[in-house]
Design a binder for these strands. Structure first.
Lengths: 136, 136
DNA sequence: ATGCTTAATAATAATCATTCACATCAAGGG
DNA sequence: CCCTTGATGTGAATGATTATTATTAAGCAT
């Protein structure tokens, strides 16, 4: 696979980061992925992980999730799918569902002068792990 | 209006913050609201604004937006409505549209063990102001 | 009205995620 | 093989939010 595009160079760090993200079925934060990648390349820096994740998202090879929560999360799967986020721990999982017909619905809406570029549908709930731990 | 609930006390600061938020049609961040509130009460502290906004959201008198972007945003209007967020400046506006039939659709979805508490539908775009400024 | 209990406040320090600055390194074309 | 320039690692800087703490003031009971 070719990880470069335009004037981007093809570094070992970028390849490892991309493969690590694709190997995870989760939607890690930058520092979660940093911990994974460090096992393979112990001297890599967190700044490099951030820089490459943002860059890879910009060229469309991965997705930067537009999700609530204070930490950025990334997804190696760029196919169209919806997420559910745990409001306790912030974990994000994939939801496999027929996409709802939002694009059709959008034709009827007054967007008040905005150029609409997309939409994000995100479910919210308590993940199985947090439900087990916390008692409410 | 009574802004207290349970053991909460009814302070001048809380009242001013709540009224200021309700008076705005925007969805301000804590520090945007802080700037507004300071005009009326110059010695108020940013920490007090944060503390009260979070508290008022917890008791359901205002809404804390579960929106992307690094800053928290709050909404004095707790009725059900959808938002659009500018991906350039982070500004959030209301969209008046018939709610899509997501609740019905949800019955058909496998939520993988999550207790679902809700969903967030958010449109994304470029606001009129940013479209005017930037040239792309 | 006065005092008392305790939540709320103002000010400031601490934390956490992310970005920046910069000296060095190395990919890949010539 | 060298040179240009993007990429890296280190560490410092930033910005938003949260925590700490001494002081103030609601509001109930006197």
């Amino acid at each position: 696979m070719n990880t470069s595009s335009g004037k981007l160079r093809n570094t070992a760090q970028r390849t490892i980061i991309l493969n690590a993200l694709r190997g995870l079925k989760t939607h890690p934060t930058a520092d979660e992925l940093y911990e994974v990648v460090k096992k393979e390349m112990p001297k890599i820096s967190l700044g490099t992980v951030y820089r490459n994740l943002v860059m890879l998202a910009e060229i469309g090879m991965i997705r930067k999730l537009e999700t609530a929560g204070k930490q950025m999360r990334f997804d190696g799967d760029i196919s169209a799918h919806v997420h559910i986020r745990c409001s306790r721990c912030g974990r994000v999982d994939d939801i496999w569902a027929d996409p709802i017909s939002i694009p059709e619905h959008m034709k009827t809406i007054d967007f008040r002068g905005y150029q609409v570029t997309g939409y994000a549908l995100e479910y919210e709930g308590i993940c199985p792990d947090c439900a087990k731990k916390g008692m409410n």
